[in-house]
């Protein structure tokens, strides 16, 4: 399960070699914005070697390749596909054709590598006005798509709006992406909170994203990882309530009751689903739940 996704600059050995110990559920090795054009080759080889030689079992690995309007992206895929990143993050995805272009190339490469077709996954990074408007189209255009990812810095530049801490300017984009991703049945990840020194702000921003329906949130600073993990993990109250719901359902079934209430509220199917999800998350995270399971 991915709560926190941490960007690490692709040409910085000191950051890459510590990738597995920074507490993030996934690291994003960045070959795009964090790497200058004349170092693209060096970063690609460095990231490849990191994936090849380092034990990164403690976290998932995502690679942000260069966008399809550059001359780098195919080489990025050639170099890294054999080391099976969890997904390729596709920057500046404007429309489904951008995604399909990459997916087509992945199929070719899989054939060459004699790998099973369709086993490499992608995550479109939506960071343009066009991308937001095409979000559902993009999210549903291929089985390789695991999730959508919102990039607010480029997006606000494209919109001509000012990027602010409370994020009003991206309210629409956030909601639109959550709806599009959920409609397509994929996950959706929120943009990083960029003030690395604001320990309170990250909590508020992550909580807002969680409440909007995001699956997790990206970060450009290791300092924000623990806050993100905390916000996107079920709280002990949530876990306790989830177990109460399951108990109540079980009792109701045993007593042959149809509808039941808990804490003065009717328990219906969505509440049960949510409780099941919470318990599954708590188990996956190794958080101890209620003892009465």
């Amino acid at each position: 399960m991915l709560r926190s996704l941490l960007f690490l600059p692709g040409n910085n050995p000191n950051m890459l070699i510590n990738a597995g110990t920074l507490g993030a559920d996934a690291v994003i090795f960045d070959l795009e914005d964090a790497v200058s054009p004349d170092e693209k080759d060096a970063a690609r080889i460095l990231v490849r070697n990191t994936m090849k030689y380092m034990n990164l079992e403690a976290c998932e690995v995502i690679v942000r390749i260069n966008s399809v309007d550059t001359s780098f992206w195919m080489e990025d895929i050639n170099a890294l596909l054999p080391y099976k990143p969890l997904v390729f993050l596709l920057p500046k995805t404007n429309c489904k054709d951008d995604v399909l272009k990459v997916c087509g190339y992945l199929s070719e490469c899989e054939k060459k590598l004699e790998a099973e077709e369709g086993t490499a996954f992608v995550m479109p990074l939506i960071e343009t006005a066009q991308g937001v408007e095409n979000a559902f189209d993009i999210a549903s255009c291929s089985k390789r798509i695991k999730a959508l990812f919102l990039g607010a810095e480029d997006l606000t530049a494209d919109l001509g709006s000012k990027r602010t801490k409370d994020g009003r300017e991206i309210e629409y984009a956030r909601s639109r992406l959550v709806v599009a991703a959920r409609a397509a049945g994929v996950d959706v990840f929120d943009t990083p909170f960029t003030d690395v020194n604001d320990d309170e702000g990250i909590l508020d921003d992550a909580l807002l994203a969680k409440n909007l329906g995001f699956s997790g949130k990206a970060s450009i600073s290791p300092r924000h990882v623990s806050a993100i993990n905390r916000v996107f993990s079920p709280s002990s109250e949530e876990i306790e309530y989830a177990y109460e719901v399951m108990m109540a359902i079980k009792e109701a079934k045993e007593q042959g009751k149809g509808a039941i209430a808990l804490r003065g509220k009717m328990i219906d199917a969505p509440i049960v689903q949510r409780a099941e999800k919470t318990i599954a998350m708590a188990k996956a995270l190794g958080i101890r739940g209620d003892e009465n399971e």
Binding site: M15, N18, T21, L22, G23, S221, P222, R223, S226
Partner: peptide, 9 residues
Amino acid sequence: DPVGLVMAS
């Protein structure tokens, strides 16, 4: 240093 912060925590 991010590693330092992980250890400190």
